[in-house]
Amino acid sequence: MPILHALQETFGHVPEDAVPLLADALNLSRADVHGIVSFYHDFREAPAGRHVVKLCRAEACQSMGGHTLAESLLRRLGLDWGGTTGDGQVTIEPVYCLGLCACAPAALIDGRPLGRLNRERLDAAVNEARNDWSTP
């Protein structure tokens, strides 16, 4: 797992080409390694957009309107969960609890935590990410 985390941190995803190399190094079968990569939600098999917005979908955020907030953002960007905007700028991923449940609804944008979100604050943060072409 620490190796997979390191790969994802470096490449933004776990490249398919890495699987046989890992299997060889760890004396596992390729199926074993593929099984581990595919089991955990975090590990992507393809690169994400330049900026990753993780929106909390869990109950505490729902109690503060997180569901409506997320649906409306996805609709306006024309995305489904896990989708990336056409310009490759923003990926929206679901997350089940960031531990910010007393400041709901919450999100993590490129690792930056945001709480007490409403439509204006979320839009401003997402637009800021979209217009920022630098690598986070």
Binding site: A58, E59, A60, C61, Y96, C97, G99, L100, C101, A102
Partner: peptide, 10 residues
């Protein structure tokens, strides 16, 4: 600590 509504461990 995966439960929604918990943050004590954190």
């Amino acid at each position: 600590e995966g439960d929604s509504g918990t943050f004590a461990d954190r």
